[in-house]
Design a protein around this nucleic acid. Structure first.
Length: 567
RNA sequence: GCUCUUGUGGUGUAACUGGAUAGCAUACAGGUCUUCGAAACCUGUGGUUAGAGUUCAAAUCUCUACAAGAGCACCA
């Protein structure tokens, strides 16, 4: 039961009844929400201000009409009109009783069907299969996983997908590196890895395994496959340790082998969007190696891109972009009508060209959305840890998970909105104090558990929670229900805007509301939850707190974090 | 040069996508445990980069300036 939505629907009904010609756009502007400041009531709507914009006529009659109609639906204690044009409502207490009953009853409280079974392909991480995952992948990993969880719980059919770039120069280099280790494993030659090769002990391990498997290192095709398979297993191990399971891994090589690039090129060619030409020299950084070369080019500027983009290199090989077009084409032909990609912010410049390619292929009905995650700044001992590929200085996810529990890592990855920079401070994660919001949230659950235990120990007996016992509650308790009533909206906006951090912030708020309530008992003993002389009151309070605990658990579950029953 | 992000108290950030007195944490100054868990709570100081515009209403939209970050053939 989303009380705000119920009232909103009612208002929309009233408006359409009175103004037959009112359009959907206007109706969408009508809001019905809990005001930030509760002195304006429990619920507030801007209908009149929205209508005023559309109609020049005097709205006094409308105002009276709407207010009277709303008064008659028996949800409200009071309906009032205030200055700029808000209508504010105060709920009857029994409404909060009903809201509470709903929260108790509904196992999926807060999760509405928003997706209508829409078929979503959610691609994230897609780190190259050249090594285990490192800190740079962490944020996108958690973001994607939690977004998927949210969408699955709200009626979307979600396929979590990982795109494996198992082609190209990097794989050559990977092969060369392993071959190097393979050949130099037992002799103490002083040869060093060359510029292009990959650092990291894991490749020595893989070389050793290949030696043990007695593989022919010059059987390039088989060896490459074997290496990719092994590295991918390292990645899967990391994912597993983070609690992330993918539904599908797609190989770039497969996309090539299936001839999808040719297929896509033919389509674009048919639309006269392909030409042989020379791209302009890029501005910005000066690269001495740059040469003007004739290439096969896609006219992406026709679709809002800043520059046309090469499809084939001068030597006739496909570009990375070409296989990406084919890959997205492949996603759509597999029946997905909603495509979400989660990329690092360094890929921002890539968005336009992929959008352009989809538009060019005529997929304008497909919803395509890219969420960019800003860089994570890893802090250790208050110093920023810089990573670089060349020096082999990588902080692996595995290293982090040795120090910090996965649940805490997940939490901290969502403590900022995706497009804000994120400082990830290992010391703060380990801090078990009020500076650490995850403990603040967990502490609320632990305290509520503790109350339940006390109640049991005292051998008090439940008399059965009902409206009569509910009526013993005061505004402090009702306020907790008001916070709980926001949960459906938090979920909805988290999903619609793809901003899972909202769940985190809500949980902090909710825990705050609880701790505040609890502490009232320190000053005023009548506000202590357990009151042996009034079982009905005690029970009503526990009912609310247990619902609160339930919503916190439900929120933690979205983040895939285990509740701590005791701390 | 161009494109994309982002500018919110001293610091780190949120704001129901345009709503009413901008929320939270930290820092700072005070206060609260013989009693349900003080890993908590309460009170106070302090903020929307600057300027203009649109609007009944702007942190949010538009323009200009300033500042920070990322990207700009091929490679991934």
């Amino acid at each position: 039961m989303d009380i705000y939505n119920i009232v909103r629907q009612k208002i929309i009904e009233l408006v359409t009844k009175r103004y037959k010609k009112v359009d959907q756009k206007t109706l969408n502007l009508i809001t019905c929400e809990q005001p930030k400041n509760l002195k304006f009531g429990d619920l507030s709507t801007n209908v009149l201000m929205v209508l005023k914009k559309q109609n020049s006529e005097d709205l006094n009659d409308t105002k009276i009409y709407i207010i009277n109609e709303l008064k008659s639906i028996s949800l409200f204690e009071e309906v009032s009109y205030i200055k700029p044009g808000f209508i504010n409502f105060i709920m009857k207490k029994e409404v909060w009783y009903k809201v509470l009953c709903e929260i108790i009853k509904d196992i999926n409280y807060g999760f509405k069907d928003l997706g209508l079974n829409r078929n979503v392909n959610l691609e994230f991480i897609s780190a190259n299969p050249t090594g285990p995952l490192h800190v740079g992948h962490l944020r996108g990993a958690v973001f994607g996983d939690v977004l998927a969880r949210l969408m699955k719980k709200t009626g979307y059919t979600v396929c979590k997908e990982y795109y494996v770039n198992d082609l190209g120069n990097q794989i050559e280099n990977l092969y060369e590196t392993v071959k190097f280790h393979f050949e130099n494993f037992n002799n103490n030659s002083k040869k060093k890895l060359s510029e292009e090769m990959y650092f990291g002990e894991y490749l020595k391990d893989i070389a050793k395994e290949l030696i043990n498997e007695k593989i022919n290192i010059n059987d390039i095709k088989t060896v490459k496959e074997e290496i990719i398979y092994k590295v991918l297993n390292l990645i899967k191990r990391d994912l597993d340790n983070l609690g992330i399971i993918f539904d599908n891994f797609v190989s770039e090589k497969d996309i090539h082998d299936q001839g999808l690039l040719e297929e896509v090129l033919a389509k674009l060619n048919k639309k006269n969007l392909i030409y042989q030409g020379v791209l302009e020299k890029p501005k910005g950084k000066i690269d001495k190696n740059w040469k003007a070369e004739k290439q096969l080019i896609f006219k992406s500027t026709n679709f809002g891109d800043n520059s046309d983009r090469a499809i084939k290199k001068n030597n006739g090989e496909w570009t990375y972009f070409a296989s990406d077009i084919a890959y997205h084409h492949n996603k759509i032909s597999r029946g997905f009508d909603y495509i979400i990609n989660i990329w690092g912010a360094d890929h921002a410049g890539y968005v336009k060209r992929v959008k352009a390619s989809l538009e060019a292929l005529g997929y304008d009905r497909i919803r395509f959305d890219v969420k960019l995650c800003q860089i994570v700044n890893l802090l250790e001992n208050n110093k920023s840890v810089k990573m670089s590929k060349r020096s082999g200085n990588f902080i692996l996810i595995n290293d982090i998970l040795k120090k910090v529990d996965k649940d805490i890592v997940r939490f901290f990855m969502l403590i900022r909105k995706n497009d804000a920079h994120l400082d990830f401070d290992i010391k703060k994660c380990l801090d078990e104090s009020k500076e650490n919001p995850i403990f603040y949230i967990q502490y609320a659950i632990a305290r509520i558990n503790s109350l339940n235990n006390h109640f049991k120990k005292k051998k008090l007996y439940f008399s059965g929670f009902n409206e009569k016992s509910f009526n013993k509650l005061n505004s402090n308790e009702i306020n907790l229900i008001k916070v709980l009533s926001l949960w459906p909206k938090v979920i909805e906006s988290s999903v619609i805007f793809k901003e899972p951090h909202r769940v985190v912030y809500y949980l902090i708020d909710l825990a705050g509301a609880f701790h505040n309530y609890w502490s009232k008992g320190n000053l005023d003993s009548s506000m202590r939850v357990i009151n042996e002389s009034d079982i009905e009151l005690t029970e009503s309070r526990l009912t609310i707190l247990n619902s609160l605990s339930k919503v916190i658990r439900s929120g933690l579950d979205v983040l895939a974090i285990k509740p701590m029953e005791k701390m």
